[in-house]
Write a protein that binds this DNA or RNA. Structure first.
Lengths: 170, 170
DNA sequence: TGTTGATTGACAGTATACTGACGATCTAGG
DNA sequence: CCTAGATCGTCAGTATACTGTCAATCAACA
């Protein structure tokens, strides 16, 4: 019985690895989200962006990327798509010509209200196979882990810091 | 205190949602993996593919996609990149002209042996912020959840079924 | 005030993911 | 034997992600 020698090079080791389980669960989560929300033609990322802009009207793209933890580079095209659907509008900031401020349009606010029940269903379905107590345990541990690992991936600002200049809307 | 009326439309609700935590954790996991393995120029997906081919030599692309749970469409380009790095070779199957069988090359086996310690470090780092008991709990719940949700995302075959025709190598 | 350094949004390049479609091929049924 | 349906690899199209770079702009300091 080898106690700690070289681990076996087998796919079974991968199945039990955290990285594999996180990737797989993310796939499943997106799939469930898309299924519940297919009537609305919004991706999880686009949904998160809408919510964040609703919470912080007038936020700029860089701060938005910190608030929902995704890449500045990617965010541009996400916003473009939301603009094309007429859910978001961009206004130049008067005091800083570099910045474009983001606001929800009326249709943007409307779709948000409509989609929320579907999103709630999706979130519930992701955890449905677990017993209620286990769901709570899992979410608690995931929250801790994401929080404590926050600096591990490129997020230029912590969400709280990102909002210092805004009026703390919300 | 409203008990269960319409939920608030706020970004804070998103932060506690399973979908957000899974997406964020996946980002973090990839980031840690790439950091630990940067000397090897292999992505998590490419690593999983190498391991799976090593475990099941002569597997074809469709079955491989089931074994590591990713999309058939995407797999083509992943294999191409592994082929370009001379880690994988593809041989036409004699009895079925549609199929191309996958094998690791000598450099493929070698890089696998070399990268494994780095991968182990990455996997450990992902869970490091948690107490040991909590790590175990989290992995147990994630395994359950992924397993029970397996059909939720498009995986054409369960891994076990996918391997019926192979000699159950491993 | 004038230049340095930081910030913003944009872009190019690479790598996953997923949908839907396609031709080539195999297999079963008639 | 020959056609209908399934399967294999591939490709086009869309959407995330991340690295690195760039011009325009701003802020701060000498």
């Amino acid at each position: 019985m080898p106690s700690k020698a070289s681990p076996p090079i087998t796919i079974d080791a991968v199945y039990a690895a955290p990285g594999y389980l996180f990737r797989r669960m993310q796939q499943i989560a997106v799939s469930i989200f898309m299924e519940e929300c297919k009537a609305f033609d919004l991706t999880p990322v686009q949904y998160a962006a809408l919510i964040a802009i609703h919470t912080h009207p007038g936020i700029d793209a860089t701060r938005l990327s910190a608030v929902i933890a995704f890449d500045r580079s990617t965010l541009g095209s996400v916003i473009e798509r939301l603009q094309a659907k007429d859910y978001v509008e961009r206004k130049p900031a008067p005091e800083d010509k570099r910045i474009k401020l983001l606001y929800l349009t009326k249709p943007g606010v409307a779709i948000l209200r409509e989609i929320i029940p579907a999103v709630e269903r999706a979130q519930a379905r992701m955890l449905e196979p677990l017993k209620p107590a286990d769901r709570k345990t899992l979410m608690g541990l995931m929250s801790q882990l994401v929080d404590l690992n926050n600096e591990a991936s490129r997020v230029p600002l912590r969400a709280e810091d990102a909002l210092e200049h805004l009026g703390k809307t919300g």
